[in-house]
Amino acid sequence: MTDQTASSGRAPARFRRPSPLAFVLVIGFAAFFVQGLVGADVSLDRLQRGAFNFVRFISMAIPPDFTRWPRMAASMLETLNIAIVGVAFGCLFSIPLAFLAATNTAPHPIVRTIARLFISISRTIPDLIWALIFVVAVGLGPLAGILAIIMDTIGYAARFYSERFEEVPPGPSQALTATGAGRVSVILGAILPESFASMTATSLYSVEKSIRSAVTLGLVGAGGIGVELSTAMRLFQYDVAAAIILVILVAVIGFEHLSTIIRRRLL
């Protein structure tokens, strides 16, 4: 090492000038950051009041009020229903979509592009916005939530399914093609079995994800426990809200554990 530096004559410079692009990016980011900070109107006074209000919220929320538990349980059940029904349809619709979107199974490049566009649109639009749209379309209630979860699941599951299909080695499909089998048969016989394990993992994760988002969908009126939560908050019933938050916490954590156990058993 010492030999090398000695032979090259001079040690490398301590400081290398950043590229113009990096320079512009850093300056731009810094400007945006400062502007945001100013725009949020952060002041010591507001922070102080915020902390005080937070403590007040906590003190009003303790002890949590579980007296309305039958309604809470019913709406938690509704949330789970929304999540399960939505994710089931979402995963089901994702399978054909993923086949249309994967390079090695798509029937035509144009079909593939359309399928990919559809998948990326359902992914890019957040679930809450889907819920808002569907509340307008089908009215308040769990159906809007289910539709929102379906779109959200497609954006996630169809993308990962199709990526998995593209990774499947071509050999077995080629062998079945060589027996004179049709395209659909080849896909179902060779590509689907090889993707099955990965698809199960993706689907289980979709369930977890959809339970988490089904909770918040109620905030915009798409059914489930979120409706109860937003009502309680608006009426300043913080103790009821705290109870609802605890119920959500238990349900989500419980389901994550369950899904981890299933995944470990299955895969």
């Binding site: 050999g171 077995p172 062998a175 060589a178 016989g189 079995p193 090889e194």
Partner: peptide, 12 residues
């Protein structure tokens, strides 16, 4: 019939 070097059976 076609027999391949890599057998090309569906592994699952």
């Amino acid at each position: 019939g076609y027999v391949f070097q890599q057998f090309n059976l569906v592994p699952q």
